[in-house]
């Protein structure tokens, strides 16, 4: 019964407990978000090692700054704002240093995945969802296509389709206007479509 009530304690209550010095509450907040934060960071930076480090940086910042968190936005978007800012800075630094993920250079695609992708993009019958979910190669292709977007565009797609945030939350995380978000998302998806189409050609 106790664990039942524990699950339903919302972020705001846990944040209050953290501020009064309860380290268990902080641990629970981190456990609640660490996989999702890691996943979003990984999809933006495409480097598992650095994603783990950036996730850690994120929560170090969260612990250090929790006292300054005023609750103007939700804890959820606050954590992701820290994570996305750290990750975008990391991407910019890498771009400046000319570092690119080795994975992005590989040009060989799995035949089955390309066929699947082709089926996806043509308007005909959609392939079996189970088959799609199993196909890691298709995921890899999609991640590769994502990497061809600008960092800012990629962040928008990741937060929307992978983290399933709504527009208001994304605008809050990225600290941009709703209108900017809408046009950025639309540009990002158009570019993504073009990239995927050239991949199957």
């Amino acid at each position: 019964m106790r664990s039942q009530t524990n699950i339903t304690i919302d972020d705001a209550a846990l944040v209050e407990q953290c501020k009064s010095g309860d380290s268990d509450a902080m641990e629970r907040l981190i456990l609640r978000y660490q996989n999702r934060v890691y996943n979003a960071i990984l999809k933006i930076c495409a480097n598992p090692h650095d994603a783990a480090e950036l996730t850690q940086d994120t929560f170090v910042k969260v612990i250090e700054n929790i006292d300054k968190f005023r609750g103007r936005s939700s804890f959820y978007t606050w954590v992701f704002r820290i994570a996305v800012n750290l990750t975008l800075n990391y991407c910019r630094r890498n771009a400046r240093l000319g570092i690119r993920s080795l994975d992005a250079e590989k040009n060989h695609h799995d035949w089955q995945a390309t066929t699947l992708l082709k089926q996806f993009l043509t308007n005909g019958r959609s392939p079996d969802p189970a088959l799609v979910a199993q196909n890691k190669e298709l995921c890899r292709l999609a991640v590769k296509a994502l990497m061809k977007l600008d960092d800012d565009q990629r962040a928008v797609v990741v937060l929307r389709d992978i983290e399933s945030m709504n527009y208001a939350q994304i605008a809050d995380v990225l600290d941009i206007e709703l209108g900017t978000l809408k046009s950025r998302l639309s540009r990002a998806r158009c570019k993504l479509r073009d990239v995927l189409e050239t991949m199957v050609k």
Binding site: Y38, K43, F120, C139, A142, V157
Partner: peptide
């Protein structure tokens, strides 16, 4: 775009290996 969104939706969660979190708390 519907098809495209299905692709990006499919990329969703890849569970990180447990190894990542093993020494995580200690190091934070």
């Amino acid at each position: 775009f519907k098809q495209l969104k299905r692709i990006t939706d499919e990329v969703t969660l890849v569970e990180p290996e447990d190894r990542i979190w093993e020494e995580y708390w200690g190091s934070i």
